[in-house]
Nucleic acid binder design. Structure first.
Length: 1128
RNA sequence: GGGCCUGUAGCUCAGGUGGUUAGAGCGCUACACUGAUAAUGUAGAGGUCCGUGGUUCGAGUCCACGCAGGCCCA
């Protein structure tokens, strides 16, 4: 019976399937975790994917990356629990449901109840769970799929509420404003996602105005600020300049009132604001009404010189005046001179930048109190000016006698034409136009014109959006900025730049975390308020909630609890039905917001265990994470929310090591998209290549943090080059081990130091490889690890060790040398199977099991899977640096000889007498002598001759050692180099003899030592020479009769082997050979090398006859030979 | 507009702290091997190291400014 299974053909996808079945049947994953009970914990957090879409090829990348370090750490002896998880809330789910039901957000609560809607969301979100599970299994991502955390789960939400309450109790959860895109026509806020829908940004022509803000305390001096939204001007409360930009003060005339005036604007905007033709016109020559308005620059200043200047309110409306520092000049870091005047008008309520800048500078905005006493902007949610402004505008229209298409009262001024009035009437005017006319008349407009620009529109109503202040709940992350920054520095980021750059900079410019989402399917904000906002309650558990409900029922606000089940559904609409009782006995209603889904996922370290309600021990043992991995696009998403919650509530990092992987692009570097049809189907790819080659390709081709240009040809290459070579090597081993009935037994194996040189060398290499892989994996560098394994397997093991040791496997009986070869190759293979098991979990297990099956059947204790083994630590004592250096020389010299043979057209089968190797040090000579036999066999030469100075034929070259001399001589380097390059053999001899030499450098005497130069030998006169990496080889190309005969013998062996093969003989079959007589040289060759030929071809006899019946004519290149081979 | 990443052979990628002939694999060409054989090996050709300036005796490497592609954020 064969102990080692041999395979003609390998079916990689098949291996994936059969090993997967084996894992399932024998619970290998569970065992790999249970095995390590009591061992040190290595904690991994799964960033939850959303299962409402099908998985793509990039998920293979992300999940492989997660998997490999967990597997590696398991081998290293850690217990690695991996709880799976699902992200279930959020806008994409809602949008998908709306699309399928053919409804919009407005229909919720009308055409469909919130209850039904959320039910639909809950069904939809797990729609592709099966596909996800399938992919996860098929690619070998080991994660606990049976007991995952699910973010819509009531227990999960309970933890979220608990965390939110902790924030609340610390005073870190507060209600404030944020400026958001808002659609007055639809009466709803819009997400950036919605704004990015195609067709939302449209080119529109708006009335733009450069308004004049009169400086206080100066005669007719104005600051110019440009805006495309004149309706925001009544809300102006400050002007922003760029501190480092250049500004000018210009004397000119108003084009509408013709009055003389002085204006301030950015120097760079001068030519755009004034007609250059007017630059020649003298100020004095201007007459009111002239088309060409002269201007004269009076002075120049920096933006920072303008800071603090006060100006008069543009619309001095009663009730809208503001205290200092309103109506002053402040600095804005985003101010440019690309358009406008280089000075930006700020209206706190209608621009996110405006809001932020004013807030930072402590400048109040223009607001009025509503009936509840809260501040509201002067435009209502329908997009209409409040009467306080409307009355002012209506009065001005009368005062200035402006013709209008209708009578305007105080309550008639809509911005952006939200009434959808017919605009074609002769006197039709928008609110913007009224505002500009009033300003023109009042000498407050410098320029008014139509301006075409891109402006976002509501995708439902097609109407332009407003940026409008919306009430929102925030987590005060800014209060912990320093701590967040500080603890981030303790995290090991891969790549580092994402941590210090992308993430670090983001933390430096932190703003408070806006938690609010005005939606339906998500975690409800657990805050109840009285109607006047005077009292609030934040609920932190289901028990608290029930207690409040009980109180409410007693008070009579509620008749019954909306929660029938013991574990209630904490979603809308049920929580909205809860009315609580304030301390004063008033009704309290829930704030209708949901929270940001990123809070859901960022809270998974706690919520996945339902901490602190349950599992405190498990939580503490599994926090913080040793390792997480996710796409780089999560930097401001999951990575941030994990970090923020952990630092702010638990004063610790949430993760210690993190890989932020890049995107998977198509082979041309374009983003994959289902729409464009360039997306790669992971299931199809798996079916074609199996999981191992796919994983290996993704990890080894490029660093995971760089974008991967996914190319199937790359997978093919990995499969052929790495897996194919490894498979061949295994098969080679299996073939001969079975013939020899060899079974590996570690206890009885020959001691490594007793084995032949070649064996000790590959063992040396193998130990170095283990260390290399360990180092790479310990620093989370999978690419390095896979490349090292690949290089060892292909270049060292297969291409060198097996090739050179080949004959040892098939010649003679099972002696010590042969045994050592088997044992060595076996040890290499089994070690590779373990080293590669993290990356190629299926194939490696398959090979491991093939290698160990015999032992298992013989009753030995061998783990049933490579994933249940203990890491084989490197044995440093087996690393022989000298031997490694020797073998490298052997490889180099062989390569050089091959190159020379090629040049001289002498094939390797033709033996040659000798090579010459110039020797510059005794050590090198010894190192080469060590591997002399190998070299001679590999390149088919008889002798290696070492030549040194005494031979008289060695020609040495000398080169400056730049790196050493450069530091010493710096600028004189060129002179020194020139001097050294002129040296002849006398100077070289002198420095070699004395260890130093004096040279004259433009009159200056300097000393150079042996270390300052590099001496090499690259030439032997009269010989064919090749040189590389400091080694030089010369080839003796003389062919003696004897050599020619041997060459013929070898050629003949080769031809007979082919014949044997054509005849279909087995390796061990014996033959008889008859050869027809030929000329003397050939007869001699046959005679002299008869035994050699017989041995090589397994021939019992070799006879040379005059004539042969039915022989085969062999083409021997230079001649032909008739031969008859017969099976014995 | 800002932050970050990437740019080296036809393709995919290596190239600690600057050092004088810039490497590998694939592909291509030629050859070898034929007892690992639908495998394998060797050699060769192939380079404006994205561009422009700068620092330096010396730059693929350091600095500045650009260009192209990508991601995230405004």
């Amino acid at each position: 019976m064969k102990k080692y299974q041999e395979y003609k053909q390998v079916d990689y996808p098949g291996i994936g399937e059969s090993i997967l079945a084996f894992w399932k049947e024998n619970k290998i994953f569970q065992k790999s975790v249970e095995n390590r009970e009591g061992a040190e914990t290595f904690t991994f957090f799964e960033g939850p994917p959303s299962a409402n879409g099908t998985p793509g090829i990039h998920h293979v990348m992300a999940r492989t990356l997660k998997d490999i370090f967990c597997r590696y750490k398991t081998l290293k002896g850690f217990q690695v629990k991996r709880k799976g998880g699902w992200d279930t809330h959020g806008l994409p789910v809602e949008l998908q449901v709306e699309k399928e039901l053919g409804i919009t957000k407005e229909d919720i609560g009308k055409k469909i109840s919130v209850e039904e809607y959320n039910k639909k969301c809950r069904e939809t979100v797990m729609r592709f769970k099966d596909e996800w599970d399938q992919l996860t299994e098929q690619i070998g991502y080991w994660v606990d799929l049976d007991d995952p955390y699910i973010t819509f789960d009531a227990k999960y939400i309970e933890t979220l509420w608990n965390l939110l309450k902790r924030f609340y109790d610390k005073g870190l959860l507060y209600k404030g404003y944020t400026i958001q895109p808002y659609s007055p026509a639809a009466g709803t806020g819009l997400s950036s996602h919605e704004l990015n829908q195609p067709g939302c940004y449209r080119d529109v022509k708006d009335t733009s105005i450069t308004a004049m803000f009169k400086l206080k305390g100066e005669e007719d001096t104005y600051i110019l600020a440009w805006t495309t939204t004149p309706w925001t001007l009544p809300s102006n409360s400050a002007l922003a300049v760029g501190e480092n930009l250049d500004y000018v003060k210009v004397k000119t005339f108003n084009p509408y009132t013709f009055q003389p005036q002085t204006v301030i604007l950015a120097k760079a905007r001068l030519s755009a604001s004034f007609n250059p033709k007017a630059s020649d016109v003298a100020i004095e020559d201007y007459k009111p009404g002239d088309k060409l308005i002269p201007y004269q620059v009076l002075g120049e200043m920096k933006g920072r010189d303008l800071l603090g200047l006060e100006y008069e309110q543009l619309f001095p409306i009663e009730g809208l005046s503001l205290p200092h520092p309103a109506f002053t000049v402040i600095a804005g870091d985003y101010v440019t001179t690309e358009d406008g005047t280089g000075i930006v008008h700020l209206a706190k309520a209608f621009g996110a930048d405006d809001f932020r800048t004013l807030e930072q500078n402590g400048v109040p905005g223009v607001f009025v109190k509503d009936e509840n006493g809260t501040d509201v902007p002067v435009i209502d949610k329908q997009g209409k000016f409040l009467p306080i402004v409307g009355k002012y505008l209506a009065d001005k229209i009368k005062e200035h006698g402006i013709a209008a298409h209708k009578e305007f009262g105080a309550d008639d001024f809509y911005v952006k034409n939200y009434l959808k009035e017919d605009e074609s009437g002769a006197d039709y005017k928008t609110t913007d136009i009224f505002i500009t006319i009033i300003l023109k008349n009042e000498n407050k407009a410098f320029k008014v014109e139509k301006y075409e620009h891109s402006y976002p529109h509501c995708w439902r109503t097609d109407m332009p959006i407003l940026y409008y202040p919306m009430e929102s709940w925030f987590i005060k992350t800014t209060a912990y900025k320093d701590k967040l920054v500080e603890l981030n520095k303790t995290i090991n980021w891969k790549p580092e730049s994402t941590g210090i750059g992308r993430f670090g900079n983001w933390l430096e410019n932190l703003v408070d975390w806006n938690l609010s989402r005005s939606r339906f399917w998500g975690t409800p904000l657990p805050i109840w308020r009285t109607e006047d906002g005077s009292e609030e309650k934040c609920i932190g558990s289901i028990d608290e909630l029930n207690a409040e409900i009980k109180k409410s029922i007693e008070k009579g606000f509620m008749t019954a609890s909306p929660f029938k089940e013991e574990v209630p559904d904490l979603h809308r609409p049920y929580v909205d039905d809860v009315i609580m009782v304030s301390s004063k006995g008033e009704k309290m209603f829930r704030e209708t917001d949901l929270i940001d889904v990123w809070f859901d996922s960022g809270a998974m370290p706690y919520a996945q265990w339902h901490y602190p309600f349950e599992n405190e021990e498990i939580f503490k043992a599994n926090y913080p994470a040793d390792y997480i991995a996710e796409g780089v696009d999560q930097t401001r998403g999951w990575f941030f929310t994990l970090h923020a919650i952990s630092v702010m509530l638990f004063d610790d990092v949430a993760f210690k090591n993190v890989i932020a992987n890049g995107l998977v692009l198509d082979k041309n570097g374009n983003k994959m998209s289902k729409r464009l049809g360039n997306a790669v189907d992971p299931f199809k790819t798996l079916k074609e290549f199996g999981p191992d080659a796919l994983r290996w390709y993704m990890l080894s081709n490029a660093n995971p943090w760089d974008n991967l240009k996914f190319n199937e040809e790359g997978v093919t290459e990995v499969q052929r080059r790495f897996f194919g070579t490894l498979q061949n090597t295994y098969n080679f081993f299996a073939l001969y081990a079975n013939l020899d009935h060899f079974t590996y037994d570690g206890d009885k194996a020959i001691q490594a130091d007793q084995r032949p040189e070649l064996d000790r060398w590959i063992i040396s290499k193998l130990q170095s490889l283990i260390i290399e892989v360990e180092n790479a994996m310990d620093s989370y560098d999978a690419t390095k690890a896979t490349r090292a394994i690949m290089s060892f397997t292909v270049d060292q093991l297969s291409n060198w060790y097996v090739r050179l040791a080949r004959k040892r496997f098939w010649r003679g009986e099972l002696n010590a040398d042969k045994l050592a070869a088997y044992e060595t190759l076996y040890e290499c293979l089994i070690t590779i199977s373990q080293l590669m098991s993290s990356f190629a979990p299926f194939y490696s297990d398959w090979m491991f099991r093939n290698l160990t099956e015999g032992r298992r059947e013989a009753g030995h204790q061998v783990p049933e899977s490579v994933h249940l083994t203990e890491w084989i630590n490197a044995d440093h004592s087996l690393i022989n640096e000298d031997l490694l250096a020797s073998m490298e020389l052997a490889q180099n010299i062989s390569s050089l000889v091959h190159s020379l043979r090629k040049k001289e057209r002498l094939k390797v089968r033709q033996p040659l007498q000798k090579i010459l190797v110039p020797i510059l040090s005794e050590k090198t000579k010894q190192q080469i002598q060590h591997v002399e036999e190998l070299i001679k066999a590999e390149v088919n030469i008889k002798h290696i001759e070492y030549i040194d100075d005494t031979s008289g034929i060695l020609v040495k070259n000398v080169k400056p050692n730049f790196s050493k001399l450069g530091k010493q001589f710096g600028p004189k380097m060129k002179l020194v180099a020139a001097n050294i390059q002129k040296w002849g053999k006398d100077e070289i001899a002198e420095i070699e003899k004395n260890g130093a030499i004096f040279i004259d450098l433009e009159g200056e005497k300097i000393t150079l030592t042996l270390e300052d130069v590099l001496i090499s030998s690259e030439d032997i006169p009269g010989w064919s020479v090749a040189s590389e990496g400091g080694v030089t080889v010369a080839l003796d190309v003389t062919l003696t009769q004897e050599l020619k005969q041997e060459g013929i013998a070898r050629d003949l062996v080769n031809r007979i082997q082919n014949l044997r093969k054509d005849m279909g003989l087995e390796v061990q079959d014996k033959i008889n050979i008859k050869i027809a007589k030929h000329d003397e040289l050939i007869n001699q060759a046959l005679e002299n090398f008869s035994s050699y030929i017989r041995e090589e071809t397994q021939a019992l006899s070799l006879s040379v006859n005059g004539n042969i019946e039915g022989g085969t004519i062999l083409d021997m290149d230079d001649f032909e030979l008739t031969v008859k081979v017969e099976k014995v």
